[in-house]
Amino acid sequence: MSKAKINSDRIYLWIVNAFLLLFLLICAYPLYFVVIASISDPAAVNLGRVLLLPKKLTLDAYRHILENKSILIGYKNTIIYTTVGTLINICVLLPGAFALSRKELPFRKAFIVYFMITMYFGGGLIPTYLQVRSLGLMDTMWALVLPGAFSVYNSLVCKNFFEANTPADLFDSARMDGAGYTTFFFSVVLPISKAIIAVMVLFHALGHWNSYMSAMYYITNPQKYPLQLVLKNMQGELDTLAASGSVSAGSLKELTNLIEGVKYSIIPVSTIPVALLYPFAQKYFVKGVTMGSIKG
């Protein structure tokens, strides 16, 4: 290869890496900034002095948040909703998808069509709301976990996985040994499906952790609000407080500063569990996207 070409390639690779670094910084810096701003003196943040390192360390904003009952309640509720919701998702999803993956199942196509219709067509927001209400689920956890308990899209992903990973004669030989579908499912299929189970647990758990819309529709009792809804409402309160605070400066300055700090700290507080899990779960998240081939 000519020297000129090697040189031009080297420059090219430098440019590639520079752009990658840019992507990295654009994604990471806002998050980093929020973290350092949350542990700095709000006054310094407002003056733009906190850009690379925290200034005048203070944990006031975090103390204030931990004193806030509604956040703690929201946290507790979200943990319960996420655990119960994901458990139900998985218990409904895996057996259902397994059944759909058995080609000898009579009326298999009819079942698939029955499920798939609801992927594209539904009653819409209000009829669904009225149905949840008439089932008496308003203001209960079940309104959050039952309507989406069976994910049709994910069941098709799992079905394809089972089809690809359980050879056709595997069940026949199991049947010779006297095993029925239930035994086969638990002792053969599940053990070889750990990867997809992990993916499904993560996606569903994340979905429950991050959702706020269904709680907004179905939950009216603040004691039952999930974390995300608490945060959303708090954001609104902070906005109004900050607006009034800036008008009457002076005595309210302290309060305003605190509000500014809390604004930053609620972001790490609500994202920490996801961030802690991420390094361990990352490969499954990536796998999940390619498993579903297009939509995740």
Binding site: C91, V92, L93, P95, G96, F98, A99, L100, F111, Y114, F115, I117, T118, F121, G122, G123, G124, P127, T128, L130, Q131, V132, L135, L146, P147, G148, A149, F150, V152, S155, Y181, F185
Partner: peptide, 18 residues
Amino acid sequence: FLLAPVVLIFLFGYVPMY
């Protein structure tokens, strides 16, 4: 195995269509 999915989809997919 299909009982729970069928019931759930009926309750929250098809009844709202009605």
